[in-house]
Structures are given as C-alpha cells and as structure tokens.
Amino acid sequence: MNIFRFAGDMTHLISVLVLLLKIYATKSCSGISLKTQELYALVFLSRYLDLFTNYISLYNTLMKLVFIGSSLAIVWCMRMHHAVKRSYDKEVDTFRHYYLVLACFVLATLVNEQFTLREVCWAFSIYLEAVAILPQLVLLQRSGNVDNLTGQYVFFLGAYRAFYILNWIYRYFTEQYFTRWIACIAGIVQTALYADFFYYYFISWKNNAKLQLPA
C-alpha cells in the first residue's frame, strides 16, 4: 500500500461521505443521478464478489463493505425514502444507463484476463465504473447550477481514480508491478471523462464563483 493508493481510497471514501452528508443533512437528492448511483452499486457488487472468500486484509474488507453498503443505502434512499425521493429529478435523469450495463457486459465477455465468472465480473465492473459517471455529468449539464456538496462529490469521485493511476505508475517503478492493462486503460478513460468537469470546477474555485457547467 503506497501513499497514492491510500490517498485514492480516502478520496473515494470522502466522496461517499459527502454524498451521504448531502442526502442526510438536506433530506434531498436534487442534482444527484439515481442512475449513476445504481451503476455504482452494480460496480461494487460485481467487483467484490470475493469479499468473503478471498481475505486480503481488514482494511480491504472494511472498505469493500463500506462501498457496497453506502451505494446500496443511497439507492434505497433515493427510491424509497419518502422525503428524499420527492426531490429526485426523474425527468432530468434520463440517461439510458441500461445500454451502458449491456455494452460493458458484452465487452467484459469479449475482453478479459480469463474467461471465468470472477474475471468476467471483475472486467465488467471495471468497464462499468469507467462510464458510471455519465448519467450524473449529463444531469449536471442539464440542471445548470450545481450545489456545493454535489460538486464536491463529483470532484472527489473523479480524483480518486486519478490517484489510482499515480499508484500504478509508482508501483511500476518501485515494485516492477504491472497493473492489469484493463484497469489501467479503463482508469484513464474514467478520469478523462471528468476532464471538463475538473476544468469548470477549477474555474469556479479560482473565481470563487458558483460552479456552472455549459448546457
């Protein structure tokens, strides 16, 4: 475990905590895409299949439980909680995310390390995570102004995989560890999808202005 990997996991954890804070504190999920949350729940469920069979460390197990638990809790909140679901922008969150699931599944059956259930599910979760943010970014562009907590949530979520890329570079030079090219390429695509968001986030931070995404 190196500093970049730890920073990445902590950034990811912070993004989840910021989202939970927003929903709990404001009892609202306005500006949050339910579809992105559903995709992330699927990402964690399909990636952490070996949660109980392949024990790596207490840290690893705890983090997996936190990510699975929080993503399911957020989906449940947005679908079932009486106050929160009222604030869900159903008519704006219209991305056809089922096509993303299908495309990633087909790709995972074609491009994987080994054609085994575990490896196909792992590749599926990696591909799906790379595109899971799309419904959220589309929703932000449609709804124009972004509230602070939502902006911070997306920012930390995007930053975490960037730290993972630094972690893979670090491990390559220090441990001669070659990360799996599927994770590497998907991680680069995933981080690149946030590029324009990061740009507008930086502009709003520099001008101390509200985050505005061009429609």
């Binding site: 990997r5 990811h12 070996d50 790596i56 690893n60 792992w122």
Partner: peptide, 10 residues
C-alpha cells in the same frame, strides 16, 4: 502470489 496481488486493490 500474483493472483491476490492483482486483486488487492479496490
């Protein structure tokens, strides 16, 4: 072993 190594990340 490489197996656990590659799956040691989140």
């Amino acid at each position: 072993n490489p197996e656990s190594q590659s799956h040691d990340e989140l």
